[in-house]
Amino acid sequence: MKRVQLVKLAHARSGDKGDASNIGLIALRPEYYAILREKVTTEAVKKHFTGICNGAVERYELPNLHALNFILHGALGGGGTVSLRNDAQGKTMSTALLRMEIEIPDNIEV
């Protein structure tokens, strides 16, 4: 097994719905989708966003797009107009997720 950062396996886009951040995670190659599905679990994402996401993490699968959609509740400091953050709408949460490291089999090329 080897450790790789998600940025080598996926691209992403994020946005907001109130105080929840939505992050779409898209496999860079179709064959990476199964790995993302197995490794990027709600528990792993919740742990990765310690100190940022104060609520539950939901995950949805879109096999047709080789993508996962995450909803991080309580992750934007109150949301849109209430949040005091520079990134109140969580536009950069996408790449925050891509910082995450997962273990993948050695034979998978990245």
Partner: peptide
């Protein structure tokens, strides 16, 4: 793909006044 995943919740139920669209069918 990036835009389809922007600001959505449950992709099986994208709720609008006219219809519930299933983004996992696209």
């Amino acid at each position: 793909k990036e835009q389809l995943l922007y600001e959505i919740g449950d992709p099986r139920e994208y709720i609008t006044p006219e219809v519930i669209a299933d983004f996992t069918s696209i």
